[in-house]
Design a binder for these strands. Structure first.
Lengths: 328, 328
DNA sequence: CCCACAGATGTAACTAGTTACATTCGGAGG
DNA sequence: CCTCCGAATGTAACTAGTTACATCTGTGGG
């Protein structure tokens, strides 16, 4: 059951391992010799060991990706963008979910480091900043997604939405639809969501409206969404619209609303993050991120690894449909 | 910029590399020595090279996954199931999309072989059967997903839905809803879809109904779906229901239907493959696969690698909602 | 006909670890 | 105080490749 090695091929072709290596990697070899080697390799079903190659090269050609959860439309598209660029560059993607558990984050990033990935795309929290910084310093470019790097250093890049702008645009749209009392559902305390909330607050203030504490509820898993919506309805009386600041909770918020018999947009306006394939059919207005392109850019940062820290910001795009009512 | 190696740690701790290796892997080492080694490792920020470990072990601990397209709800859940089991076993997932291109399939499976993955989960076509068979014989278990293996051999497993049963169940449900003239949308010529069509044909025959050639149209990309639906409407007169045999095309078929002004279920019944998060909200009846569990089982087959060829078949489950009308 | 030189090939050192085997160490018993 | 024995540690071979350098081969020019 032992696998064919370069030595077996060399023996079968009657040459040294160095010659086989040269044939495989394009060194100076006579035509006739090369043919003998290729024949032997094919006959023995030789498949070179990429691990050995990588250890000599100092690192693998793989791109590591550590993300929260593939179920989110944003992360899914991000992943596809990364995969596309990786594939075009002959790289594979090594992948792990954290499911929002900080311990997993740290462990996975370390594992990726052990795997000597060519570079790393992470959507993790601050718990891994130390290691990513050291990795970047050691020549493994790291791209933080959906969060800017607090203290830039070479090799440590970021790819993020302008979240404050997204919040302001949401506010402006809601106001233009005649909504005056907005409720907000967030999940957890990721900086991206804090920034969106802040932008929303600013945008509402521009229109002379307030976003009181009682108007914001958090649900870190789908199962808590219904209660969060209920709490909002109770304590934030007169609420005429609900904004979901995380694409991962869109379905749950939508069904909490319809489950209460609230009609969209007549009883309540609804706006959520991240475009998704059913949004047009459902008429749901969304604040879209260019997730696919963000993934491509993240992968390109890994592959090109510019000398300085690159901090890429992307503009949000509001896709107005009918869930907030007619736009005046 | 050179990375810390086991030799550096050994020198810093004043011991040999063998001792460091023993400390790391739990051999017999004196307490005091172990402490010195751990200290040195921490001080030098030592991160062992998993590639080197793997080359000595003969193979990596990584699980390879080669699938068509992450956008499909089935593949997404499958992937999550694989990831869950891999994670629980300390394995990482190495991942590549084929986007239905046969050339990519072959290349990606070969790359996974070169990476010496611990095992492989593939949803690919017959073009890779030769190599997966050789890989399995060489000790790399391979699991074919969504298709049974034509000629079982040790280490070559499969995980698939009972597609004929799925087709029959779809037929029975449609008939019980009073539908008598069914149209079918498929994508490509994957055996799974052929089997579903065959099952549908059988189920309709049981009720004394036929499925003529004109009632089946294929669309291998979303862009062709609208034309395919149009062709069905034209040539299959009297059609009272449409079945979409691939979850990847659900949105496109649905919008082709509503785009024509056809109301579901009043003008036309609609049933599709694979449950998805918006299906309850939209009232769409689906033929669900236990995709997540199939992914878990696939990963378990890779990890356990039973001696003989395991051919796991899963039962489809019809989730009746309202898109085919009221069930009598 | 021999030499020089370039191109082809082989030898051996190197990558970063693991592990079989040999050696050294330390404490108990004689 | 010196064996003796087992545990702790070191040495060196091994994994599967790449590559610098040495050697060999062949051919054209003198």
């Amino acid at each position: 059951m032992k696998r064919t090695t370069i030595g077996d091929v060399a023996a079968a072709a009657g040459v040294s391992v160095a010659t086989v290596s040269r044939v495989l990697n394009g060194g100076a070899v006579r035509e006739a010799t090369a043919t003998r080697v290729w024949d032997a390799a094919a006959r023995l079903d030789y498949t070179p060991n990429a691990l050995t190659r990588s250890i000599f090269a100092g690192r693998a050609s793989t791109i590591g990706v550590v993300i929260d959860d593939l179920r989110s439309p944003f992360y899914l598209d991000l992943m596809r963008g990364i995969d596309e660029v990786a594939d075009a560059n002959g790289s594979l993607v090594m992948f792990a979910n954290t499911f929002h558990r900080a311990g997993r984050e740290v462990a996975h990033v370390r594992t990726m480091d052990e795997q000597r990935v060519r570079g790393l795309v992470v959507t993790t929290g601050e718990s891994t900043d130390d290691r990513t910084r050291r990795m970047a310093a050691g020549g493994t470019p790291c791209v933080i997604v959906a969060r800017s790097v607090p203290d830039p250093s070479p090799g440590l890049h970021s790819v993020a939405l302008d979240n404050v702008a997204a919040g302001r645009l949401i506010a402006r749209h809601l106001v233009s639809c005649g909504r005056r009392s907005v409720g907000v559902i967030t999940s957890g305390t990721r900086p991206s969501q804090l920034d969106r909330t802040e932008g929303l607050r600013q945008g509402l203030a521009d229109a002379g409206l307030r976003l009181p504490e009682a108007a914001v509820a958090s649900a870190d898993v789908d199962e808590h969404v219904n209660d969060a919506v209920g709490a909002l309805v109770e304590r934030h009386t007169g609420m005429d619209s609900i904004v979901c600041l995380t694409g991962r909770r869109t379905v749950a918020v939508h069904s909490a609303l319809t489950g209460r018999g609230l009609a969209i947009p007549d009883d309540i306006g609804f706006l959520t993050m991240d475009d998704f394939s059913w949004a047009p059919a459902l008429g749901i207005t969304v604040m879209a991120q260019p997730s696919y392109r963000m993934g491509q850019q993240a992968a390109e940062l890994v592959i090109d690894n510019p000398g300085e820290s690159a901090q890429l910001t992307f503009e949000p795009m509001l896709l107005a449909r009918t869930s907030c009512g007619e736009n005046g």
